[in-house]
Design a protein around this nucleic acid. Structure first.
Lengths: 283, 283
DNA sequence: TCCATAATTATCACAGAATGAGAATGACGC
DNA sequence: GCGTCATTCTCATTCTGTGATAATTATGGA
């Protein structure tokens, strides 16, 4: 255990379940003396990552919120994705919510959401909440588009979770299911994450053509007529292609220090396979 | 410079202006060898605070977003403030946005915002953006309610900024202005932060009766009739008192691990001075 | 306002851990 | 497949973080 590790371990102590720590608690948990723990807490507080609340309790500090804003404003995926998502939500005419997710250490995490009506009808894929890789449209569509050896690695590490997600128990079956999802271009699930919600997701690819995340519309059950779903599937796919293109553009034209005026994307990316959505519901 | 300090300094390198760093750049900037910088980057990436994007560039990582969610879900101020703000926005009938701000190292920062229509009409007090202490209703109302010696300390450190904020150049004048704001209970500014917007703010006090933040309605200019402002002022004050009470409640009944059902607050806090708003516009 | 108690910082000798340079490995693009 | 760049490994040296206690500073109650 190095100093840096211990310092960061302190930061990792702060969870939703236990969001307040005293210096002594943390010292015991990490395994350092109280003196050292105080130094850690002081240094972390100095940069705003921690904040001391009354009576010696510490909590996560304002720098976290500030850093979050930095990400919101600079992350290429979010920067490119936001306008695409706004268009998606508007065009869809749905009361649902659009989600932008990305891979995060064997998990999937929502990094942005857009909706016409935002009274926080909290959805399972809440922003910042790590979600499993094998449940829900947003996750599965990513899983299906991973490089095959990566998918294989997941299978060997999490066979039970994959089976529980309804993707199969043996590698051959799984491979078939994943290919089907990949071929389809979108993936649709019903009530896997939130009961009463249908998720329609398409993969998002980075400049190197590897899947890096997904974009999803989560619509209420009662909107989910076949026709509406077909419509949204096309829109979701179009948005995904739009984001792909935007990311590619950003990574090529490296001169993106101060985005004087946002780059203009094709209204409907007419690239190779951005055609009609091959709708199919999978358990 | 200690190890912890250098490690955290690396994290602080990542700003909106320069959101991508290579290991070598950072090594030079911090003043360590490349080997060491790599260790730092590795440790920070391991806990998700950094993330390596292609071609050796690093950016802030997903743990930042995750931590932000932890704060949103656990910070007492936000937890208590959110429902109060939703009610405020609904009752106000305004197309404006409600802001919850808190003190942050000689600055003021918005930690939550609510609105009926959320098409991101970005307001100056954007969530996570540190703002000056002497401009705008949200800031000034906090400044005015600081303990007098703290206010004095600010005066000695930032006399020019205070003067620029229209609060006076000499301590006597400033003291009078601050008292006036304090007495009034709300503070109203026009176009100080965003042109075309009127800010109506009330202070929020912690369990120890010290000001810890403020709650604000930022409404469009054309809504700002005297009658409407009077209305909103009362609502903002009510919301502030509601939050005070909620914080007090939380800090007393420490048994708030799993909030089975949210505590119920008085619909309109009928406490000591929660009466009519003494509306007055100041520069 | 004062004191009592807890929270936090300062001190300092020593152990041990971080450091830096360069080699070795790994990844990636062409 | 090769060349280049990114990243990790190795290891001796030394410098820095550590821990126990003391000193100081908040904090809360009477």
């Amino acid at each position: 255990m190095t100093t840096a590790n211990r310092l960061l371990a302190v930061l990792s102590l702060f969870t939703i379940e236990k969001s307040e720590w005293t210096v002594e608690e943390a010292a015991k948990e990490i395994g350092v003396s109280v003196s050292t723990a105080y130094r850690y807490f002081r240094d972390l507080s100095k940069v705003g990552l921690l904040d001391s609340s009354p009576s010696g309790k510490y909590v996560l500090g304002p720098a976290v919120i500030e850093n979050d804003r930095k990400i919101r404003l600079t992350d290429p995926l979010i920067k490119v994705g936001r306008p695409a998502m706004q268009r998606l939500v508007t065009r869809s005419g749905s009361a649902g919510v659009a989600l932008l997710c990305r891979i995060y250490r064997n998990r999937v995490m929502c990094v942005h959401q857009e909706a016409r009506v935002l009274p926080e009808n909290t959805v399972g894929y809440e922003r910042g909440r790590p979600m499993p890789m094998f449940r829900g449209a947003s996750s599965k569509v990513i899983f299906a588009n991973l490089p095959s050896r990566t998918a294989r690695w997941f299978f060997e590490k999490y066979p039970d979770e994959i089976a529980a997600g309804g993707l199969g128990s043996d590698w051959e079956t799984i491979k078939l299911n994943l290919r089907r999802i990949r071929r389809c271009g979108v993936h649709i699930t019903r009530g896997e994450v939130d009961s009463g919600r249908v998720g329609i997701a398409a993969p998002v690819f980075g400049p190197d053509r590897n899947v890096i995340g997904s974009i999803t519309m989560a619509i209420p059950d009662d909107e989910a007529t076949p026709h509406f779903i077909a419509n949204i599937s096309a829109l979701v796919q179009a948005a995904a292609r739009e984001i792909d293109a935007g990311l590619q553009f950003l990574s090529s034209g490296e001169v993106v220090q101060d985005p004087g005026q946002p780059p203009v994307y094709h209204e409907l990316s007419s690239s190779q396979d951005g055609g009609t959505a091959d709708v199919s519901t999978s358990s």
